[in-house]
Amino acid sequence: MNQNLLLCGVGGQGIVLVSKLVASCAMQKGYDVMSAETIGMAQKGGSVFSFLRFGEEIASPMFGRGQADLMIAFEPAEAVRMLPYLKKDGCIIVNTKPVMPVTAVLKASAYQGTEMLAYLKQNVSRLILVNGEKACHEIGSPRVLNMIMLGTAVRHGLLPFSVSEAETAMRQNVRPQFAELNQKALAYAESEK
């Protein structure tokens, strides 16, 4: 059985690292892994994604709409944008903090993120909300959102490996001076709403 994961968010949120860690854990489990992600200009504040698949017989690194078993969305509007890729009964983890694009700030537009969350609540049966802003604040760094999101997915049993396996992969992939902080974020347990 293949598993399809879709990560999405805004350039600069650290999605690529999460994709790497999931891939490395899945490889450890003996799966074949393929992934595809946004690289290039869109990484500068644009919408970014990473498709990741593991299992036995995978032909393509990308998959079509309605095929993601799990989506980890780092931003509410990006979750909505990519929602068509989620399976009918798929699960989605969403960071509730919106990232305002410059275009929206300039136009003093109404985008707040709450309208996106309301839409998600109406249309997704398995929705897990993460208050990323609060979590980052409690951990003491604005740059650990990615580990908080990964930790949440693992703790909910949505990925076939444990928090400590994710931690091992993380330690192999981040600079030693950031390992402690990232470990805290991976292990961060937010009371569910």
């Binding site: 504040g45 919408s47 985008y111 996106m116 839409y119």
Partner: peptide, 14 residues
């Protein structure tokens, strides 16, 4: 799997 029309999505040019 048909989804209802989402709210206006913010555009994010790089």
């Amino acid at each position: 799997h048909k989804l209802p029309e989402p709210p206006a999505l913010p555009v994010r040019p790089p």
